[in-house]
C-alpha cells in the first residue's frame, strides 16, 4: 500500500481519508454505519489537556457523527494527585467536559466514558495502571457513571510492560477488575513497543476467562436454585453424587477448559518439558492461527484503497525543507 499516510500534526483532511478507507473495507458508507464503531479519544497527560491529534480526532468525530469513548485522566503521581479520589475527580470532570463538547457540536451522538484513573510507575515514569489503589479509582468511576447517570461505561487495559509474562499478568488482573466492576465495553491494548504475536493467544485465553466470568454473574446471588439446598439435602454429607448429579452436569459449561493452559501436576509438567505458558504454549498455539487464511479483499477494493492512500499521501505528506 506504499506505507501509512503520514502527516505532520494531523488535520481534519486526514480523517476524510480514514473515513474513505473504512467505507471501502466495509463495502460502502451504509455498511460502515451498521458497525458498532467508537472512536477513542485519549488524554492521559494532565488536567484537561488535549493534544492536537486528539483534538482533530474529536473534531472529525463531530464531522462524521461517530460515537466516541473519551478517556481523560491525569498521570499521577508525577502529573496528577497521588490519591485515587483526587484523580478520579479529575477524570470525571474531564469526561464530563468532553461529553459536553461533543454534545454541543454533535447533538445526540453517543458518548461512552472510557473510565480510567491512570497512574505512572514513580520508579520509571512509565505507565503503571496496575497500581493497586488506582484500581479502586477505576471501580469508583464505573459506579459513578452507572449509578449517578445510568449510563454504560468502557475501559481499556494495557500491557504496561516489556516482558511477555508481565504483560500477560497485567492484562489478566486488569481485565478481571474491569469485569467485576461491571464495565460494559472492555478492550485491551498491547504495548506497541513490545508486541509479540504470542499476545494473541494470551489475550484469547484472558478474554475467554472474562467472557465466562461475565456470563456467570447471576449464579452468585443466594437464590434457592443457586444455593441448591434441596439437592444438597438429597446428596447428603459425603457428597459423592455431586459428580454425576444432573444439577451439576447441567452446569458444567460454567467450568470451561483453558484455551491453551497446562493444568498438569508438577511431575507430569516436568516430564513433558516444563514448558511455560506465555513463551511456549501460547507461541505453539500461534501455529494454528498461521493456518488461517483470511479472505482477500476483492481486487477492485484494493485498487480503490491504494488510490485513496496515494491521493492522501500526495496531498498530506510532509515535505522536509
Amino acid at each position: 500500500m506504499g506505507g501509512p499516510p503520514c502527516t505532520t500534526v494531523s488535520t481534519i483532511e486526514e480523517y476524510d481519508y480514514v473515513e474513505k478507507l473504512a467505507a471501502e473495507v466495509a463495502g460502502g458508507e451504509e455498511e460502515l454505519r451498521k458497525r458498532p464503531l467508537f472512536w477513542t479519544v485519549y488524554n492521559y497527560i494532565g488536567t484537561l489537556q488535549l493534544n492536537r491529534f486528539n483534538s482533530w480526532l474529536l473534531r472529525a468525530s463531530m464531522k462524521y457523527h461517530w460515537p466516541i469513548m473519551p478517556a481523560v485522566t491525569a498521570a499521577a503521581p508525577l502529573m496528577g494527585p497521588a490519591m485515587a479520589a483526587g484523580n478520579t475527580a479529575i477524570s470525571h470532570a474531564g469526561i464530563l467536559f468532553m461529553t459536553a463538547l461533543k454534545q454541543f457540536h454533535d447533538p445526540g451522538a453517543a458518548v461512552v466514558p472510557n473510565n480510567i484513573v491512570f497512574s505512572l510507575d514513580p520508579m520509571t515514569g512509565r505507565g503503571g495502571a496496575h497500581v493497586p489503589h488506582f484500581m479502586l479509582g477505576t471501580c469508583a468511576m464505573n459506579q459513578l457513571w452507572h449509578e449517578l447517570y445510568g449510563l454504560p461505561t468502557a475501559q481499556y487495559g494495557g500491557t504496561f510492560a516489556a516482558s511477555l509474562d508481565q504483560q500477560a499478568f497485567n492484562l489478566a488482573r486488569y481485565l478481571t477488575l474491569q469485569i467485576i466492576s461491571g464495565t460494559d465495553f472492555i478492550f485491551e491494548q498491547c504495548g506497541g513497543e513490545a508486541f509479540d504475536p504470542a499476545l494473541i493467544p494470551i489475550c484469547a485465553e484472558i478474554a475467554r476467562m472474562g467472557r465466562s466470568l461475565m456470563s456467570t454473574f447471576h449464579q452468585i446471588y443466594p437464590a434457592p436454585e443457586n444455593l441448591a439446598l434441596d439437592v444438597t439435602k438429597e446428596v447428603g454429607a459425603k457428597g459423592e453424587k455431586w459428580m454425576t448429579h444432573k444439577y451439576n452436569l447441567d452446569r458444567l459449561k460454567m467450568f470451561p477448559p483453558g484455551f491453551c493452559l497446562d493444568t498438569n501436576a508438577f511431575d507430569t509438567w516436568l516430564e513433558k518439558g516444563a514448558r511455560s505458558w506465555v513463551y511456549d504454549l501460547c507461541r505453539e498455539k500461534l501455529k494454528e492461527l498461521e493456518k488461517h487464511e483470511p479472505k482477500p479483499l476483492p481486487k477492485d477494493v484494493v485498487e480503490r484503497m491504494n488510490a485513496i492512500v496515494k491521493e492522501g499521501n500526495d496531498k498530506l505528506r510532509v515535505r522536509v525543507e
Partner: peptide, 12 residues
C-alpha cells in the same frame, strides 16, 4: 516534537 505535548520525559 510537533504534535506532542508530553513533557514529563524532557523535564526529567
Amino acid at each position: 516534537v510537533e504534535g506532542d505535548i508530553h513533557n514529563l520525559g524532557t523535564n526529567i
